[in-house]
Amino acid sequence: MKKILLIDDSDTYIWSLRKYLQHRGYPVKTACTLNEARAAIQEEIPLVICCDLDLPDGSGMDFLDEVRAADKELPFILVSCHDKDDYEQEARRRGATLCMDKMKGQLVQDKLVEYAYRQLSGEKTPTFHKLLFVYTEDTSAEVLRAAMLQKGFDLILVSSIEEAKRRIFEDKEIELILCNLELPDGTAMELFHTLRRVAGMFQMKNPPVRLLPFFILTENNDLATEYEYRHEGVNDYITAPVNIPELIRRVLFFVE
């Protein structure tokens, strides 16, 4: 299996990215310099490249030119702490797939998973949906995420209301929210009403604040409880054990 190539001279940054990607099942090759990156590519063409803009022996932009001279399609994500306005237009002109803020580590992780999935799918632009799953510790979240990823759904896992709100406002590509009933810092309905209230205040004109479909995942199969939440405006109420094909069918109703 081809590897994701990470090029960065920060041991801490590259360790964090590699750990996340390997945990998601993607093999990773790392390089601290452009010379190491060149050697890695000669050994094997990578699945995706994620490269820092500034490296000890040169510029990620120049390395992008080298890669594009040999391969016009290989996903190449350029990351940097610099303001994107200073370099993104030039990077796009030279063939960068994406330019990202290096400090938004979780978004970088998500994008690497997305492009790796697309490469492995064998299709040019396969359907890929990003969902936010707000879960409790006793939920088999990783098992559900692995099963959903095989079907083209990337579950972003967060374990608190505060973290969920931050991700929703930061990531404009999230299409739907799955949420367990009880959370460490509140309930699913508290998050639901907070998001609806904020969306109403902005009248949905602010792109990060939009009325996302909201599903509840729970072991509580009491019909009265389900009716109560649906009456409040929750889009769907799914009881455990989760049937993956049925969950996908319900999600697609709202995101396609």
Results as ranks from 00 to 15, higher is better:
Met1Gly: 04
Ile4Lys: 06
Leu5Lys: 02
Tyr20Met: 05
His23Pro: 03
Arg24Tyr: 13
Ala31Thr: 04
Cys32Leu: 12
Ala39Glu: 15
Ile45Cys: 10
Leu47Gly: 01
Leu53Ala: 08
Pro56Ile: 10
Arg68Leu: 11
Glu73His: 13
Pro75Arg: 08
His82Val: 06
Asp83Gln: 13
Asp85Ser: 12
Glu88Thr: 13
Glu90Ile: 02
Arg93Asp: 10
Leu98Phe: 07
Asp101Thr: 12
Lys102Asp: 08
Met103Ser: 14
Leu120Gly: 10
Gly122Ser: 05
Pro126Ile: 04
Phe128Arg: 03
Phe128Glu: 02
Tyr135Ala: 10
Thr139Asp: 15
Glu142Tyr: 12
Leu144Asn: 04
Ala146Pro: 00
Leu157Lys: 03
Val158Ala: 03
Val158Glu: 06
Arg166His: 10
Glu173Trp: 00
Glu173Phe: 01
Leu176Ser: 07
Cys179Arg: 04
Cys179Tyr: 07
Cys179His: 05
Leu181Ser: 11
Glu182Pro: 01
Leu191Asp: 11
His193Pro: 00
Arg197Phe: 05
Arg197Trp: 03
Ala224Trp: 06
Tyr227Asp: 15
Tyr227Pro: 01
His231Phe: 10
Glu232Gly: 07
Glu232Lys: 11
Gly233Gln: 04
Ile238Leu: 15
Ile238Arg: 01
Ala240Tyr: 14
Leu247Pro: 08
Ile248Trp: 03
Ile248Tyr: 02
Arg249Leu: 06
Arg250Gln: 07
